[in-house]
Design a protein around this nucleic acid. Structure first.
Length: 264
DNA sequence: ATGCCTATTATTAATAGA
C-alpha cells in the first residue's frame, strides 16, 4: 500500500501536474495540502475521473487539505484539530482507508518569528501533540502525513546556519517535533535513510531546485504497529522539475499489504 | 536585513508562502 503526501500549492492551478503525477506514481492514498480553493472549487470531477475518491476541507485563498483514495472513498473520521473551536484555518482532515487511520495536516508556517503567527504555530503544534498522544493510546495503525513546516535536524537543511531564526527551524519548533516523535512515532523517510540529506521543498527563489538548496519539511509519521510494515520511503524529486511545479515534491511510503500485515 | 518567485484575490497591488 502506497501512501503519499503532496503540498500542491494550488489544487486548480496545478491540476494537470497533479493528474500527471497520480497517473505515474499510482499512490493508493494521497494527502494534499495548500488547496488554495474553497470547497465548491475543489476539482472533484477530474480527480474522480482519474480513479480517486476524495474528501476535502477547502478555504478561500489559503490552506486547504484533502485525502484521496484510489478506487475508494475515504471514510472521514475528523475534520479540524481539536482544542480550539475558534481556529478557522483548514489544516487537518482525517479518514480511514483500508483499515489505516490517515491524518492529513498542514502545520502553520509561523513566519515572521517572533510574532502572532509564530504563536499560532506553537499553539497548533501543541494541539497536534495532544491529539497525536490520544491516537497512540488507541493502538491503531495510524499515519500522520503532511507539510509539518519543520526541518527536524541540521541534515534536513541545505544551509542550517541561515535558518536558525526562521519559524521552520527555530530550536523550540525542532524540540516540538522531537517531542511529538518521541511519543512513539516513526519518521518514515529518516528511519529508512539515516544520515542522508533528503529534501522535499525547494524555494522558487534563487534557482533553489537547480542548486539543490532544499528543505525536508513534508513528513509521514507512523504509529508503532505500522512502523514494522514500512518497506520503502521516497521523494518524487523529479516532479519539482516539471513545468508549473509546486515548490514541494510528493513524498511517499510503501507499506506491507493489509492481508499479510502483522496482527497486533 | 531584504528581495528573489508564484498563487490568489481583488484591480494593478496586497497578502502569504517558507
Amino acid at each position: 500500500m502506497k501512501i503519499a503526501t503532496f503540498n500542491v500549492n494550488g489544487v486548480n492551478g496545478r491540476l494537470e501536474l497533479l493528474l500527471r503525477w497520480l497517473g505515474e506514481a499510482k499512490p493508493d492514498v494521497v494527502c494534499l495540502q495548500e488547496l488554495k480553493a474553497p470547497d465548491e472549487k475543489f476539482p472533484v470531477a477530474a480527480i474522480e475521473a482519474a480513479g480517486y475518491g476524495a474528501i476535502w476541507q477547502g478555504q478561500r485563498s489559503w490552506n486547504g487539505v484533502a485525502i484521496l483514495a484510489r478506487g475508494a472513498t475515504p471514510v472521514e473520521s475528523r475534520r479540524g484539530l481539536p482544542g480550539d473551536a475558534d481556529d478557522a484555518h483548514s489544516r487537518y482532515i482525517e479518514a480511514v482507508v483500508d483499515g489505516i487511520l490517515i491524518g492529513c495536516l498542514y502545520l502553520p508556517n509561523g513566519n515572521p518569528a517572533p510574532g502572532p503567527k509564530f504563536d499560532y504555530k506553537r499553539r497548533w503544534f501543541a494541539r497536534l501533540a495532544d491529539y497525536a498522544a490520544e491516537l497512540i493510546e488507541l493502538d491503531l495503525p495510524v499515519v500522520l502525513a503532511g507539510d509539518f513546516n519543520v526541518m527536524p535536524a541540521d541534515i534536513d537543511v541545505y544551509k542550517p546556519q541561515r535558518w536558525v531564526k526562521d519559524a521552520l527551524f527555530r530550536p523550540e519548533v525542532r524540540a516540538a517535533f522531537r517531542e511529538l516523535v518521541a511519543q512513539g512515532w516513526t519518521d518514515a523517510l529518516r528511519h529508512l535513510h539515516p544520515g542522508v540529506p533528503i529534501y522535499t521543498f525547494w524555494d522558487y527563489f534563487r534557482n533553489a531546485y537547480a542548486r539543490n538548496a532544499g528543505l525536508r519539511i513534508d513528513h509521514l509519521l507512523l504509529s508503532p504497529g505500522l512502523a514494522v510494515d514500512l518497506q520503502d520511503a521516497q521523494v518524487d524529486r523529479h516532479v519539482r522539475g516539471w513545468e508549473k511545479a509546486s515548490d514541494h515534491a510528493p513524498v511517499w511510503i510503501e507499506l506491507r499489504p493489509a492481508r499479510i500485515r502483522r496482527r497486533r
